[in-house]
Computed example of a mutant assay.
Amino acid sequence: MYLDHIVHLVTKKPTEVVEEWKGNGFHAVIGGQHTRWGTYNALLYTKTSYIEWLALENEEIALNANHPLINLLLHDLKTKPGFGTVCIRTENIESLFNQLERKGIETSGVLHAERKTTSGLVRKWKMLFVREEISNDLPTPFFIEWQEDDEERYQLLQKDGTIVDSNLELTISTCEFHVRNPREVMDKWKNYFEIKEQDNQTLLLANTNLVFKKLETGEQERLACIYVNGHGKQEPIYYEQGTYCFCE
């Protein structure tokens, strides 16, 4: 399984996000609108995954969307912005749905989604969520299957300028989560998704390490920091309550 993207829930408009990250030397772009959800986004692609800065565009639509990711956004932005959750890419979401159901894990069922880009193109995908209450506990990753395979999708993204050469030099090497009981969360995710354990604080996706560290009591369990390789070593960027660390 691959990390597909990180969802960073933000208060700023996509135009502001793009301008600020371009100022930091990154090729970020405006993604587009999720018209049925009342949200819009900005994106930063890497070689095998990307960062999505997701913002609220129309609160009334969002409140009526009844969508797990939008419910998480509404919950978290009541207090502060920050990393919301991570998305894992699969090539057969129907098979994954059946696998989870056989284990007795209740899900959203396979959801169909789309986003209208600034150029008017409509991108489509399927999503799958583990059904759980939105809270301060760490959200379970959700899953995505894109309409195109990875090679075709990246070719289209390069063609429309979403991805340039500098994006392909970047990788998200590590996602660091802060949770009250790292062992419990790791065992849960291993059971749900059948991913390998490297050591007592690390699970392995094909393209990214998932590291779990102890959280002080009373704080929100969330992704706290991501490590990005390929932009050169520099001081971390603390952005909308999320920490971005950089390595060679």
Results as ranks from 00 to 15, higher is better:
15 T>V: 06
58 N>E: 15
24 N>K: 15
33 Q>I: 10
31 G>K: 02
56 L>N: 01
28 A>Q: 05
57 E>K: 14
33 Q>P: 00
56 L>M: 14
18 V>G: 13
44 L>K: 02
65 A>G: 13
32 G>Y: 06
16 E>L: 01
41 N>P: 04
60 E>Q: 13
32 G>R: 10
56 L>E: 03
43 L>F: 03
45 Y>H: 11
52 E>Y: 09
17 V>A: 09
31 G>R: 02
42 A>D: 12
66 N>E: 05
60 E>R: 09
59 E>K: 15
65 A>L: 05
20 E>R: 07
29 V>G: 08
41 N>E: 06
44 L>Y: 07
16 E>P: 02
48 T>A: 11
46 T>I: 08
50 Y>Q: 12
53 W>S: 01
59 E>L: 14
64 N>I: 09
17 V>N: 09
39 T>R: 00
45 Y>R: 06
54 L>R: 06
52 E>P: 08
62 A>I: 09
50 Y>G: 06
19 E>V: 08
57 E>M: 13
52 E>Q: 09
63 L>Y: 11
64 N>C: 12
66 N>G: 03
39 T>D: 01
45 Y>S: 11
37 W>S: 00
30 I>A: 10
29 V>C: 10
68 P>E: 01
58 N>Q: 14
38 G>I: 03
60 E>T: 14
13 K>A: 11
49 S>Q: 01
47 K>T: 10
49 S>W: 03
44 L>I: 09
66 N>L: 11
45 Y>A: 08
43 L>N: 08
41 N>G: 03
21 W>C: 10
20 E>H: 06
50 Y>S: 08
45 Y>V: 11
29 V>K: 13
32 G>L: 10
35 T>K: 13
54 L>E: 10
64 N>G: 13
19 E>C: 01
13 K>N: 13
26 F>Y: 04
30 I>K: 12
46 T>A: 15
45 Y>N: 08
28 A>S: 10
33 Q>F: 00
19 E>M: 09
26 F>W: 05
37 W>K: 07
70 I>V: 15
61 I>T: 15
53 W>H: 01
35 T>P: 02
47 K>W: 04
44 L>P: 06
16 E>G: 00
42 A>M: 06
47 K>M: 11
50 Y>K: 05
70 I>F: 15
13 K>P: 00
45 Y>M: 10
49 S>E: 08
18 V>K: 14
41 N>A: 06
25 G>F: 08
36 R>V: 05
23 G>N: 12
44 L>W: 04
36 R>K: 13
69 L>K: 02
31 G>S: 07
53 W>L: 03
28 A>E: 05
51 I>Y: 14
14 P>T: 00
49 S>F: 02
21 W>H: 06
25 G>W: 04
25 G>T: 05
65 A>S: 15
35 T>A: 06
22 K>I: 06
40 Y>I: 00
69 L>N: 10
64 N>W: 00
35 T>I: 04
57 E>C: 09
14 P>L: 00
59 E>Q: 15
51 I>A: 12
56 L>C: 05
25 G>S: 03
58 N>F: 03
32 G>F: 04
32 G>P: 05
41 N>C: 05
51 I>W: 12
31 G>V: 01
62 A>R: 14
34 H>R: 02
38 G>A: 05
35 T>W: 05
44 L>D: 10
40 Y>D: 14
24 N>I: 00
59 E>W: 01
14 P>R: 01
35 T>Y: 07
20 E>L: 08
64 N>V: 09
66 N>A: 11
46 T>S: 14
48 T>C: 02
36 R>A: 07
70 I>E: 11
17 V>S: 12
27 H>N: 11
